[in-house]
Design a protein around this nucleic acid. Structure first.
Lengths: 344, 344
DNA sequence: TTGTAAGCGTTATCAA
DNA sequence: TTGATAACGCTTACAA
């Protein structure tokens, strides 16, 4: 009996049964009305009035245990830096238009939190999971896939999993921007690399190396300074590069966070961009448009990435049973600004 | 019969019943094990093996229809700019440590989307809702409160609702930073105001005006240029201020987005900061630390805001039944940098 | 189109 | 501690 139920943590609201009783119809009829099926007009009006009077609200959780559809998409990222925040904004927007929302989790690079997040998503029965691929969690993600939860990777891939992927042409874009530096007369070009366990880090480094060798420039391992995608890593890596016997005349940063660290070190040490050194970076963020003469950058098509992810999502969730995994690779733009300068 | 059930959209996994059967115990026992109650050792081992073998995963949605607890917190923001992204990151972190996650929705300033979000949260039965207050939705939020969903406002308040609030001392911080400009000899100080429907916009403007009148400076309405919190609004508002007969010698921006717009206009028009004009802003963001000599700013205690919200959340969700609403107001720091300069 | 009733996967009560 | 079983709020055959 509801009134004597001690278990409810909070006052329970009206249910579909209450609505049916007040409207003098069967629960099935109310359910059909709620789900947009055709209903006799008189019934519809009575149901609407009952819903109004009772302040009834459908319980999606209850529905989901029958339908196995929660209308929630898991979204797992390492951090909410500008890149991921923009992804989130675009993704939230496109996913919203399909009647779904994002259950977000931020792992901060901690594998235990990643595992925790995947468990949480599995328990909540998210309809699908969108994540920036992180290695080390191969098994746990595979487990989700075995439980028929579609996974879509973006930004970084985890090879060998039956997941969809929406990536950008990391290697080609890096090749193009480094080639631009070479065109400007640079041959001693440093790179701030990301985490070598990340596919985008590997590919961006490969694009850099390919561009150099395509132009007959010997690759000097000392010019590849390892960062960690973050500002502090870029700062330290830049310091190392600039302390070399023969420092580079140009630096390419594999992401924007490290580029900000580079700018910070250069500024503190009185090196001017582009007079003393040219700088180019992956990712196009607000600060690059504003900083002094602007920073030359690779612009990722964030909106397209989000839309493509949503398209794949809807496809996976509506099509009978998806066949082959999809692997979309989107193009990037190179935005030339004042931070890259001709030398000699 | 499971095998013939046509309704399942996807392969259904093992249930607690399956686990009980394989482990040779009752479902109640499995449930108790899952929820951390004491279990006879032999049973525990058999249950653990069964869970392992079956790849069982608890269905949180099913549990929630009995417990009325989803372990999801709704998070509603207008946009994922740097301020809200940082809030999200901190909030996700602190909320995670209580075993919950954030169901995020981004409304982009559209009241229809706000309404949609609130309906979605209500249907999903989020345990609580954290939101940047938006006017115009008084009734719908009140409806959620009537359904016993705790609401916590941050950044902007909506007066008159039985909700908790975690705000910052907008007026006092603005007063302090404007007073600093006056100390430097400025008397013709412009302000880029936010949306006047937002409580923080009102309070920051009030702090500005109070600072002026406290020092006997007449308030010139022409010096209050209305922005929209965004870069484009700040750009246009700055243009208007700088086109006045007697332009200001200093500008205070009520948030960082408009300050970036101001920097953009000033740069395009060859005005240097701080030589030609001083600039100070609410919000302390990455670009302010890096931009030329740095931008003087009000630093909001984002981490504290998030932690306070989480504390209140936990309190509301565990205490018998919350009494009075809480109204926390946190202090801000003024960070002095190179963008504000003494004149005369 | 409607009513009836059997699930869905949990939790919680109650007697043992 | 455990087992058996009645909720929880909804969807969906199935029969009318």
């Amino acid at each position: 009996m509801r009134q004597t139920d001690q278990t409810a943590g909070r006052r329970r609201g009206a249910t579909i049964i209450d609505v049916a009783r007040v409207a003098n119809v069967a629960v099935g009829t109310v359910s059909r009305y709620i789900n947009g099926q055709t209903i006799r007009r008189s019934n519809r009006e009575q149901i609407e009035r009952a819903i109004q009077d009772l302040g009834y609200r459908r319980n999606a959780a209850a529905a989901s245990i029958r339908t196995d559809l929660t209308h929630m998409i898991g979204f797992l990222v390492p951090t909410f830096d500008e890149f991921h925040a923009r992804m989130l904004e675009h993704l939230a927007h496109s996913v919203r238009q399909t009647g779904r929302a994002l259950l977000t989790y931020c792992h901060g690079g901690d594998p235990r939190v990643v595992a925790e997040a995947l468990d949480f998503f599995a328990a909540q029965r998210v309809d699908a999971l969108v994540m920036d691929g992180t290695a080390e969690v191969y098994d746990r993600v595979d487990d989700l896939i075995k439980h028929d939860i579609p996974i879509i990777f973006y930004n970084n891939d985890v090879r060998g999993l039956a997941a969809d992927r929406v990536m950008v042409e990391n290697q080609r874009a890096s090749h193009r921007i480094v080639s631009h530096l070479i065109d400007l007369g640079h041959s001693r070009i440093g790179i701030l690399t990301g985490d070598p366990r990340n596919s985008s880090g590997i590919e961006r480094l490969a694009g850099y190396e390919q561009a150099l060798s395509d132009r007959g420039i010997t690759i000097d391992p000392a010019l590849a300074a390892r960062g960690n995608w973050r500002m502090d890593g870029g700062y330290e890596a830049t310091k190392r590069l600039m302390s070399l016997q023969t420092p580079p005349t140009a630096i390419f940063s594999a992401n924007y966070g490290m580029a900000v660290g580079a700018l910070s070190w250069l500024k503190e040490n009185g090196r001017h961009v582009p007079e003393d050194i040219s700088l180019a970076s992956f990712d196009d963020v607000a600060i690059f448009r504003l900083y002094e003469a602007g920073i030359t950058a690779v612009a990722q098509p964030v909106a397209s990435i989000a839309e493509t992810i949503t398209d794949i999502l809807v496809e996976r969730l509506t099509e009978p049973s998806g066949d082959a995994t999809r692997n979309v690779i989107l193009e990037c733009d190179i935005i030339l600004r004042g931070s890259t300068r001709r030398i000699n």
